[in-house]
Design a protein around this nucleic acid. Structure first.
Length: 266
DNA sequence: ACCCAGGGTAACT
DNA sequence: AGTTACCATGGG
């Protein structure tokens, strides 16, 4: 499958490097590639728009890249707030991907008290060590494939104290105690409580999973950077114009502060 | 050597 | 309910 989409409200680098995903890499020729949901995807900016190629179906790609959502509408709504207006303009091409729940869960467990380059490294080693080999690399290992895994088994990842959290997540997903199909249809609060049953999953990790995998756009992950933004610009809370789409606003703000040294005080 | 990183937990007030 | 040390590892 090969599809071409307009590059309005869609920038590959901004979308892949805004911290929502960890497996997309830029090639020397400027194209991006990743294994997602077990298959290779490549994406490249061309004169006529963005060209996406994969063995995945069109339906999958439209869902994964969230191609049917109008981000221009979000941005015009958010622009009622001056700080968000600037953030939207700076990071105008961010889209919220629909990633696989298990991959997103494990990835954001690994992300805690960690930095993005090392998160990517740990995930790479997880895929190389336990993932199924597929064309172009390794699939992210499924929960089923990791059944029974112990923290010691995960030692080669060098995930540190997070290894036992990963093991706990695998166990609870396999037992059905954490049920992605159920979480998918649950509202934000109860869905968050389900995920927080996993040892090592708190509000922030749960909200990332709900936003980046289940596309619950009202989830608002509060990491150290967002907390700084909130303290600096929104001490009384988020503006009314983001209601229902807090997670989308969060990504514009997150990308904005991370790429603007000194915008908020550390 | 020290600090921090897309935090969470356990053990305190 | 709100604070704090600690958690492994790697990079600056």
């Amino acid at each position: 499958m090969k599809i071409k989409v307009k590059n309005t409200d869609f920038d590959l680098r901004q979308t892949f490097q805004c911290g929502q995903c960890f497996r997309w890499r830029e090639r020397e020729d400027g194209a991006f590639r990743a294994i997602a949901a077990g298959k290779l995807i490549t994406a490249k900016e061309t004169d006529g728009g963005i060209v996406i190629e994969s063995a995945h179906t069109r339906r999958f790609l439209e869902s994964y890249f969230d191609l049917t959502t109008d981000y221009g509408e979000f941005k015009s709504r958010f622009s009622a707030d001056p700080v968000l207006k600037t953030a939207c303009e700076r990071s105008a091409g961010i889209r919220i991907l629909r990633q696989e729940p298990f991959e997103t869960l494990i990835s954001f467990i690994i992300s805690q008290n960690n930095n993005i380059p090392r998160i990517s490294g740990i995930i790479d080693r997880l895929c190389e060590s336990f993932g199924e080999p597929v064309e172009g690399g390794f699939a992210f290992p499924t929960a089923k494939r990791l059944r029974g895994i112990t923290p010691d088994d995960l030692a080669p990842l060098r995930a540190g104290f997070r290894a036992r959290y990963i093991a706990d997540a695998v166990s609870r997903v396999n037992s059905g105690e954490v049920d992605f199909a159920e979480i998918d249809v649950l509202p934000l609060e109860p869905a968050r409580e389900r995920l927080k049953q996993i040892v090592g999953v708190g509000d922030k990790v749960a909200d990332c999973v709900l936003l980046f995998a289940f596309h619950k756009l009202d989830a608002f992950p509060k990491d150290v950077w967002v907390k700084r933004i909130m303290a600096e610009f929104y001490p009384k809370g988020l503006p009314e114009c983001v209601k229902g789409a807090e997670g989308v606003a969060q990504q514009y703000l997150f990308d904005y502060v991370r790429n603007n040294d000194g915008l908020v005080k550390a």
